[in-house]
Design a protein around this nucleic acid. Structure first.
Length: 205
DNA sequence: TCCTACGTCTACTTACATCA
DNA sequence: TTGATGTAAGTAGACGTAGG
């Protein structure tokens, strides 16, 4: 839940950055939650009826023209508001409210779109992470097998050299001390001699 | 420079209309 | 009939600006 809220805040910030001309009037309210208010209910039947009379659905043509205007410009200047109001036969206040609500709907829609875009990207990244992890596992397995093979070859070589007359004067045992069973890239080839891994490969492969 | 009034904005909320 | 949904409108608080 907290994560979702954080995500939402980040989206808000993102949208504000994306559309600076539209949502820069009010500074982002950070941190402290605003106190909740309760609106008074209409006490009388008369006031309820009056409210119902005031609140009527806009007809399609009015909405169409408002949408056209909103498409051109999301902000509503005073002159445009008055002109639109007289064209539509509405109160300028109604036009202003319609634009306010329309901006809110538009912002919500943008947030939803942005959220699903980010979600898709996130899913892709998670998938790629899984793929890379399984590849790492596979390579580790291959590495283990290669180490076993090297170990076997080295032991065989040791057996051959210990049969020779000079074997008793041999140096220290093969230095397989590192993480992968050998000390860095140095390999022991018998008779107290160490060679680099690449040289070892050239010699025996 | 400060104060105040006013208009506009967003965010949140309520109330009503509509529809399944 | 009822619950869900969409939307017009109310409200608080923040901000910018003009005027005194």
């Amino acid at each position: 839940m907290a994560n979702q809220m954080k995500e939402l805040e980040e989206h808000m910030a993102l949208i504000s950055q994306m559309y600076p001309g539209v949502y820069t009037q009010v500074a982002p309210q950070q941190g402290r939650p605003k106190p909740r208010r309760r609106r008074r209910k209409n006490k009388t039947a008369e006031s309820g009826a009056a409210a119902a009379a005031k609140k009527r659905k806009l007809i399609d043509e009015q909405v169409h023209l408002l949408e056209l205007n909103f498409g051109n410009e999301h902000k509503l200047e005073s002159e445009r508001k008055d002109r639109l109001a007289s064209e539509l036969g509405l109160d300028p206040r109604q036009v202003a409210v319609w634009f306010q609500n329309r901006r809110a709907r538009w912002k919500n829609k943008k947030l939803e779109e942005e959220y699903s875009k980010l979600k898709t990207i996130h899913e892709g990244v998670v998938l790629e992470k899984c793929r890379l992890e399984s590849e790492v596992l596979k390579l580790k397995e291959q590495l283990g097998e290669a180490e076993k093979e090297i170990q076997g070859l080295t032991e065989r070589m040791d057996g051959v050299s210990s049969n020779s007359p000079s074997s008793s004067s041999m140096g220290p045992p093969p230095p397989f001390l590192g993480e992968f069973g050998y000390d860095q890239d140095v390999f022991y080839i018998g008779q107290g001699t160490y060679i680099h891994g690449f040289d070892w490969m050239n010699l025996y492969m």
